[in-house]
Design a protein around this nucleic acid. Sequence first.
DNA 1: CTTATATATGAAAATATTATCATATATTTG
DNA 2: CAAATATATGATAATATTTTCATATATAAG
Lengths: 108, 108
Amino acid sequence: MEILENTPKERFQASKQKMEKAAYILKTVAHPVRLAIIELLNQQGEMGVNDICKALDCEQSLISHHLINMKLRGILQSHKDGLNVYYDLKEKEIVKLLQCIENCDCNM
Amino acid sequence: MEILENTPKERFQASKQKMEKAAYILKTVAHPVRLAIIELLNQQGEMGVNDICKALDCEQSLISHHLINMKLRGILQSHKDGLNVYYDLKEKEIVKLLQCIENCDCNM
DNA sequence: CTTATATATGAAAATATTATCATATATTTG
DNA sequence: CAAATATATGATAATATTTTCATATATAAG
């Protein structure tokens, strides 16, 4: 069942919220290290934190912050096995963003 | 003609650069007002600055900053006609990002 | 030339994001 | 239990982004 937005004001608010959600998702992904994590997990499947650190040549604490952040926002999931914590892509749609961008040419 | 990356180091660097470019594009778009501008222009075609301000119920100066920023980065283009400046989408690929996100469900 | 209108600009203030560091916690091993 | 390893946490520092405000510029109209 669909919600109908009738008044212009309601439509405006709905669109505003939609943009806020989209911006929120884009923001959590718009960072080179986080994108690298996403691509890595997409290619390799689940990985332990340390392996991610090594693969991306980044400090453990920094990677941990990014991982937890993305997990909190529903992009990653994780499970623990002994000492290790394995992270994996939860929201696979997110990978399409990267593909989407391949074709953009922006001025950097 | 394609450039071949041979050593792991070279591949690593190439991927790093790719992620930086992608993050750059995502960042310039990851903002509710800028997304709203993009959607608006996609629906309406080119619009004057003032009409954009009214449509989004935002201050002129703020909209102007966002417009100029996105133009600088190659997402928008503009032309002047008398007193008015009309902005339009230049990089249409960008709209696909929004479509891409519709299907994501993130924790907000 | 004066006034009005549309847009741009730049600096400063307000906020948000990211990185770093020191340390805590949890688990395994001996 | 002590030591080693993997990961998380939290505070702080470093940076970057966004908003606001006052004002500049350009064009048009009277």
